[in-house]
Amino acid sequence: MSARPEAIRERLLATFSPLDCQVLDESAQHAGHAGAASGGGHYRVRLISAVFEGKNRLIRHRLVYDCLADMMQQDIHALAIEALAPSEINK
């Protein structure tokens, strides 16, 4: 894993203590995209954490964006988020 995805993963692990944390770098699929010119990457994250229990999708996404806020300014151009509570895994 390259430096950026690993940095994203480390922050998510420290903040959410997730049961599962996946970070996929999809930047290559967006080569030539205007936003990619700024140097920010495209990432997809999947988190399963008790922190999300009882919270709606909007709040979960805000929590993830808050965790990565300073990286959103330069390192991350686009972020797709799947944030689940443990109780939702088998549904």
Rank of each mutant, 00 (worst) to 15 (best):
F52A: 11
R9M: 12
Q73R: 10
K55T: 06
A3D: 13
E88R: 02
S17H: 11
M1T: 10
R4I: 15
A28N: 09
V64M: 10
H42Q: 02
I89F: 10
R62F: 06
H42I: 04
I89G: 09
K91L: 13
R4C: 10
P5I: 00
A31C: 11
D70W: 04
S27D: 06
F52V: 10
R44Q: 11
I89V: 15
P86D: 01
L84P: 02
L19M: 08
G39N: 05
A3C: 04
F52K: 05
R4L: 13
R4N: 14
Q22N: 06
D20F: 13
G39V: 08
P86C: 02
A37F: 02
A37L: 05
M72R: 02
L79F: 01
H77M: 06
L13M: 09
Y65A: 06
L24E: 15
C21I: 09
Q73V: 11
E88L: 02
L47P: 04
Q73E: 14
G54E: 08
C67N: 05
E26K: 07
A78G: 03
L13C: 07
D20P: 00
Q29E: 15
M72G: 03
A7K: 12
E26C: 12
L12V: 00
C67R: 04
A78T: 02
D70Q: 08
D20Y: 14
Q74D: 15
H61I: 09
G35C: 03
L63W: 14
R11N: 06
P5N: 09
E26T: 11
I76A: 05
Y65S: 08
A14Y: 02
F16T: 03
G35S: 02
Y65N: 15
R44W: 03
G32I: 07
L19R: 10
I48F: 00
L47T: 07
A50F: 04
I76P: 01
M71I: 07
I76C: 05
M1W: 07
G32C: 09
G41A: 04
I76D: 03
V51H: 08
C67L: 04
A3S: 12
L68T: 01
S27K: 03
M71D: 14
A69F: 11
H30W: 11
R57K: 10
Q74C: 12
L12S: 02
R62M: 10
A85C: 03
